[in-house]
Design a protein around this nucleic acid. Structure first.
Lengths: 250, 250
DNA sequence: TAAATAGTGTCTATTAGACAGTATTAT
DNA sequence: ATAATACTGTCTAATAGACACTATTTA
């Protein structure tokens, strides 16, 4: 078995071609992105309609934006994800996190395939600006979305929603769904939309204000009521991890 | 762009072959596993020595166990990871979690390659039993390991250690590093080894005992002192997530 | 003035941290 | 008895949850 470990050995080269053998079948390699935003007081995900050319699996079905890695264009997986994100939404700088990978012999009828899934959060303000013609926002119904999705994309979407909801319990991720300037009640509303449950105002404010995350600006949000302080994300605002989840155990 | 989204379109097929075109170069696809155990009061990781056949990159270097996906043998990525885990350690059922994927044009001199990384926790008792001839345990020095690793495996290892340490703060993962039967002080010691810092005994015991994780058995661990209650993992013991990390914020 | 929302304060519950104190074994 | 480790209890600190209360605007 020497020479098979690491990326050292070949697979599927049972007969002959022992050394340096790279002459075995390779899986298809793709990247898919689950892009979230908040629209109309609801969490939305971006889907694209698939083509119906000859040999296209799942013709005309909806799918997550993504596609095959282009070994000429893409330097690495994240670059590939950012390229696809920009192509569909015009957004170039935003929160992007690797979600996981899904690979099997059966997920794509064209053969063994593996996809590297990412999830991205973009502000509502950017959600409509430069949307691709074939892309469309869908509200999340619980953990899934109305249309049937191509491939195993329903499963990937489910994992993304769970990961997002889970992390929102103890991180500042929703801040990346906000516009440039926002109030604390607006940020809290975003948390509540993602978590689908109300949060305590004072605990929320204490947590957000004691984290090194946002700073007040010299401006208020006016309304038919007491104006609210506007904040913005601090310059180098990496996501903040809190030491507790929001709800104490049952 | 219709017909290019999802896994629908081809990449790299700039010239001709428009529909159903799969005639573009595919990255190499591999799986690597970071296998942890506790030996001699220290966290260890399993490495294998690479071969030095013709065309082998990083000859004789140490690397994470892994290798190319075998589209004939492996039904999916996790099956591939479990197969490699079993080949190197003999362990078939243990904690296995996907860590992430690393893919780029430059990580393997043989071409664009993407690896799907997993991490596994195995009990000390199983760590020596059926070890492959080319595999060897190495203690972790901080976040890395003494030998230089092939490819970007040092980076992958680093990510695995960080993920493990991070999750140990608020999960029951160390339970998977324990033998069949263990005492609470032994479990605490395992936590402390992974986290590399002491924990408070009473807070630790309260947390573990109030989780639905372990159950006492009718047996004690004898020593030159007061005997300790032995416990075992409950039957369907999925990892437990606690609502707080161990250390309150600074 | 009333309505509406922003923001603060007070009290309780939970649990980690610190650490003292008791329990049970071998020698 | 002493040493050693297992285990429990007590007190404090931090923070979430509940909820009442005050503040500031428009109409």
């Amino acid at each position: 078995m020497v020479g098979r470990q690491g990326q050292g050995g070949g697979a599927g080269n049972k007969a002959g071609a022992r050394r340096a053998g790279l002459d075995f079948p390779r899986p298809l390699t793709s990247v898919d992105i689950v892009i979230f935003t908040i629209r109309l007081e609801a969490l939305h995900v971006l889907l694209v309609r698939r083509g119906h050319g000859e040999g296209e699996p799942f013709p005309d079905a909806f799918a997550l934006p993504g596609g095959f890695v282009d070994v000429a264009k893409d330097d690495d997986l994240e670059a590939c994800a950012r390229r696809k994100l920009a192509e569909k939404t015009g957004v170039i700088s935003t929160y992007l996190e690797q979600l996981g990978s899904w690979g099997s012999a059966h997920r794509d009828p064209r053969g063994w395939s593996a996809t590297h899934a990412y999830f991205a959060l973009i502000p509502a303000s950017a959600a409509e600006a430069a949307l691709a013609a074939d892309a469309q926002w869908f509200p999340l119904a619980g953990i899934s979305v109305k249309p049937n999705l191509a491939f195993d994309h329903a499963e990937i979407l489910q994992a993304a929603v769970q990961r997002l909801r889970n992390k929102v319990e103890y991180t500042s991720l929703p801040a990346y769904l906000m516009p440039e300037e926002f109030t604390l009640p607006e940020l809290q509303r975003t948390y509540e939309i993602v978590l689908d449950r109300p949060l305590e105002k004072s605990a929320f404010r204490t947590r957000m204000l004691s984290a090194d995350l946002i700073e007040p600006i010299d401006k208020m949000r006016k309304g038919p009521n007491r104006p609210a302080q506007l904040y913005r994300l601090k310059a180098a605002a990496a996501p903040v991890y809190f030491a507790r989840t929001f709800n104490a155990p049952e």
